[in-house]
Design a protein around this nucleic acid. Structure first.
Lengths: 218, 218
DNA sequence: ATAAGTCTGTTGGATTTCCAACATAATAGG
DNA sequence: CCTATTATGTTGGAAATCCAACAGACTTAT
């Protein structure tokens, strides 16, 4: 048990909280640790979420089966990341499935308990709330950025907006992005080879230089 | 002053909090009411936000001036709505400007204070935190839905995904949406008349019926 | 070191979207 | 009620994107 707590102590959600505090936290927040096997369904769409998860070890994928019959892997959840928290706080059921990519161990926390600092003098409660607000707000900012990129009309504009954002984040005209070509195309909602063609044009026009996931705006 | 509090008592952020509690809240949360004139800048991009706003009266617009030189009105803020909260909780500066569409009155609240229930026995603090988590989580879900729609490859698929989401939300095959044609096109990131043509096709194919902002999936 | 697999960029044709112009219907204002 | 304005749908041509196929470069596995 202390084992598991040691593993997640560096997570954003538990930032500023000691391992000793973590121990009593499980009782206070009705924490439950569950194990899942590779390919096992963790959460299914349509399910009402009252406990969100913090991945201790393993890997999960968020999968969307949409109305048109498409299966899309939205993203992957890595150790120390939380999932399902937004749906835990709104009166809407999740529209995605969460599946285990590999054998995984998850700490489930009661969202209601977490957001309501108790009167037991649990000092970590305030910190938890702040951390959670930070995490969800950060996700909102990231989602807003993605929408800004995707809202552009042409592939060229999408690339330019995205790359400029990255430049600002890195405080430099030279930077490395976390995507390969296919992932970047997926992020921008465009077709990979068409985007590649546009990147070539931008290079030929002297707008930028690029090599793999390294970019330099000119 | 009580005047203003009466106006915002129905806001999501203050749900479950009495007007009496609101009064003491201003001191506790370092609440400050500011007035802005039509077209006045409320918040500018690049600004670090420590207090987010709750619009008492008036109307605001969120404006994005992007790298390519475009000015986009992202959305409008109506009375009783909050703004800037995501940026208040993350270590990133806002990328948008917020301007007054008309004379406006705004209550600014200290984000740090709000997320940290004090030890003064302020009972509303817990409720405020819950309300804030709800609001931020709800925005997260809405942004995620918008991305799902915009991620579709064709205008037809975008429409179908969007309309199906609305149908699920309304628990009915018949529903009214909150957008006119231009607004729906903007939401989906497509051109209005092209989307209109696609809607006509869907009608002719017996997929749906529509009349202004009323829809019926068949 | 070699072979297999993956990533990146190129290309031409098919498909889709955008754009501008316009007509008609509906709405708003006096 | 009438007029002006706005919303909606239609249409054809231009522009852009997607798609499939492929070649070459790079990476991984044996």
């Amino acid at each position: 048990m202390l084992n598991e707590l040691e593993k997640i102590k560096d997570s954003e959600l538990l930032n500023g909280i000691t391992v000793e505090e973590l121990s009593s936290m499980l009782g206070c927040l009705r924490g439950v640790i569950k194990k899942y096997q590779k390919d096992e369904l963790v959460l299914s769409e349509g399910e009402k979420i009252e406990k969100f998860g913090l991945l201790i070890e393993g890997r999960l994928r968020i999968v969307l089966y949409d109305y048109l019959g498409n299966k899309t892997i939205i993203s992957e959840i890595k150790p120390n990341q939380i999932f399902g928290e937004a749906f835990a706080y709104v009166d809407k059921v999740s529209s995605t499935n969460i599946e285990a990519i590999e054998d995984s161990k998850i700490l489930f926390l009661d969202s209601e308990k977490l957001s309501t600092p108790c009167n037991n003098g649990c000092l970590f409660h305030k910190q938890l709330v702040k951390n959670l607000l930070y995490i969800i707000s950060n996700k909102n900012v990231n989602l807003t950025e993605k929408i800004e990129c995707m809202s552009q009309r042409t592939t060229r504009e999408k690339l330019l907006i995205f790359l400029n954002m990255e430049s600002i984040k890195n405080n430099s005209k030279e930077f490395t992005i976390a995507f390969d070509r296919q992932a970047l195309a997926d992020y921008l909602g465009v077709e990979r080879s068409a985007m590649s063609a546009e990147l070539s044009k931008l290079r030929n026009e002297g707008v930028l230089e690029s090599e793999k996931n390294k970019f330099k705006l000119l």
